[in-house]
Design a protein around this nucleic acid. Structure first.
Lengths: 208, 208
DNA sequence: GGAAGAATAGAACGGTCGTGCTTTTCTGTC
DNA sequence: GACAGAAAAGCACGACCGTTCTATTCTTCC
């Protein structure tokens, strides 16, 4: 009777199921150890497979990395975008997006924090399809948030003395910095601080 | 007659000079390609040396990485901390610290942006002396900025309804996010946005 | 339940890595 | 300008990398 079935249940063949396990493991390890330093052998060990058996699913390391990025992207969408879409347009949705983003970091959908914050730094100076997918995803996130900000401005719920782009930058900064501080210093209380900063900033941007 | 002589001039022996060249090159490459993926061979090529000739200066890759981190730390201090120390205590120094930090990013003291933002993500899940030095440096920066914020609060130039820690978090967030956006998307105009956000936030934190 | 084909494993390759050892070249000092 | 020691190079090593090819085991469907 479940309306939403878990993604795993819909994977019919054994190949699809193993591929799913591999990509989940890869995305998790990539956020902690890095996407590129994650070797085929290391990943095979973590999934109890042989190097060649795992390798056969992808054909090259680059294809594996691309698949990992796309897998991570769908997890991000499920965790942040989709739930926020049920919030009403305007200010509530802006807040929902920020709040779910922090939640996604806080409950460690990936053990090393945001997958895209981690890998974008790694690949920013390495042209190729892997970098392109990572950047596409980040651009999508930022422009989606910016679009929500614009709608809030048009509804008169946020001032328009600042551009939507500037407001988006400020809002996203707090999430990014919290992700980074948690990763580096290990203190999860930064997420409360980030939420407070975002809430206060949104409050101060409301027209008088 | 120069009161401040360039650091290079004070390096007497040939060994000290080449070591300096190696570390500068290493720090630059590390911000773009990563500190760990930077191999001895790659660094030897970039400095026109043989692998073994370069290696002999450090004895191990880890020692090379430690030396690189410490070299980068001294560059950061020269670019951000030292110039800000000439600003009066209180709000002006808080602003000077933030402004010089943005300047350090903007004029690309390191080609890949902030050395410590880049390497801390890389090493946060890899215990050892390299990670320890990186985190020590970051902790020093944040606590120095926080101390300046406290002084501004004590002088009545900033409200104390928020803790110095919270204010520091917000101020540093903008610099971090600008560094990240410039690195990933290549748009240097984010630094103006970061400066504006910091200035506005400091303004809004002044007692009525 | 047996055939067809997908999924996995095993062994081997050329290449690069960090590192040690030996030899050659260069620097600084009397 | 020669001598002592520092600096640099040359070479070889074992380990691991991504990748290929072949052989084996397991799934799926009639």
């Amino acid at each position: 009777m479940a309306v939403v079935e878990k993604q795993t249940d819909v994977l019919k063949t054994k190949g699809e199921r193993t591929r799913h396990v591999i990509l989940t493991t890869a995305a998790n390890l990539a956020t902690e150890e890095g996407l590129d330093p994650l070797s085929i052998g290391r990943l095979a060990e973590a999934t109890d497979m042989s190097k060649s058996g795992l390798f056969a699913h992808f054909g090259s390391k680059e294809e594996l990395q691309i698949a990992t990025v796309e897998h991570a992207a769908s997890l991000f969408v499920d965790a942040v975008i989709t739930p926020a879409r049920s919030a009403p347009k305007g200010l509530p949705r802006v807040w929902a997006l920020c709040d779910h983003k922090i939640g996604y970091l806080e409950r460690q959908v990936f053990p090393g924090g945001c997958f895209f914050a981690a890998t974008s730094v790694e690949f920013s100076h390495r042209p190729g399809p892997v970098r392109d997918r990572i950047e596409d995803m980040l651009r999508s996130w930022l422009s989606y948030l910016e679009h929500a900000v614009e709608q809030a401005q048009e509804a008169g719920e946020l001032v328009d003395t600042l551009s939507a782009c500037e407001i988006t930058f400020e809002l996203d900064s707090f999430g990014m910095a919290a992700n980074w501080q948690h990763r580096v210093f290990g203190d999860p209380s930064v997420y409360d601080g980030a939420r407070r900063a975002i809430r206060e900033r949104l409050e101060s941007l409301r027209p008088a």
